Amino acid sequence: MFQPMADRSKLETLATCAFVRKADNVLFMGPPGVGKSHLAVALGVKAIKNGFSTTHFLLDDQMHVLKGDAAVPPRRLKAKRYLNSVLLVIDEVGFRPLDRQESNLFFRLVSARYEKGSIILTSNKHVRDWPEIFAGDEILTTAILDRLLHHVHIIHIDGRSYSLREIDGLLRPPNPAPAQGGDVKTA
């Protein structure tokens, strides 16, 4: 089902993959469970169907890979799939803060892809709160955002979690049956 809180016309425009051709970025923001990841993956699949190489990472998995490549000189990193894919999807930015090393590695990744390849990010945090994600470093966060937001399409999704909405009925106690006839006595 379509996410009713997202701008349908923006999503339809993104589904043309013109943003990928222009090396623009996409940022999905909103609370957990509203469909940001689902929409990001759908755009990734659409990009693949349009012939674009696409790589998807959860941020924690991306950090593990970046840490493993931390000592590799930048010129040798060009062969890495996360750099040479036309589209890179990074999911779950903001679920946990990154330490100083991770923040610097994330900056290195964003800088290497700047105006060369598209990035789709999903985040449960508004960009004004991103310094708390990136080791509390406002200067580094500004540098990251400068590159990410230069050519960006932002989709903000509000609403309640789909999962929580579905189990909401299960969590509510059943309504007691109304008393039938007779007097109710209290002790």
Rank of each mutant, 00 (worst) to 15 (best):
P4H: 12
M5P: 00
A6M: 13
D7Q: 06
S9Y: 01
L14I: 13
L14R: 02
R21C: 08
V26H: 02
F28R: 06
G30S: 08
P31V: 10
H38Q: 13
L39I: 09
A40N: 09
S53C: 02
T54V: 14
T55D: 01
T55E: 09
T55I: 02
H56C: 08
L58F: 04
D61F: 02
Q62G: 01
V65E: 11
D69N: 10
V72N: 06
P73N: 06
L77K: 12
R81K: 15
Y82R: 15
N84C: 15
S85Y: 05
S85C: 15
V86M: 06
V89K: 04
E92H: 05
E92W: 00
F95E: 03
R100N: 04
R100F: 00
E102I: 00
L105N: 04
L109P: 10
R113I: 12
E115A: 09
E115H: 09
I120A: 09
L121D: 03
L121E: 03
S123H: 07
K125H: 06
K125E: 08
H126G: 01
V127G: 01
V127K: 01
W130T: 01
P131A: 11
P131G: 07
I133H: 00
F134S: 04
G136K: 08
E138T: 15
I139A: 13
I139F: 04
L140K: 09
L140E: 07
A143Q: 10
L145S: 04
D146W: 12
D146F: 08
R147V: 10
H150I: 02
H150R: 01
H150C: 09
I155Y: 02
H156F: 05
D158P: 04
S163H: 11
R165F: 05
E166L: 15
D168Q: 13
P173M: 09
P174C: 06
N175S: 06
P178V: 09
A179F: 13
Q180T: 14
G182M: 07
D183I: 14
A187N: 11
A187S: 01
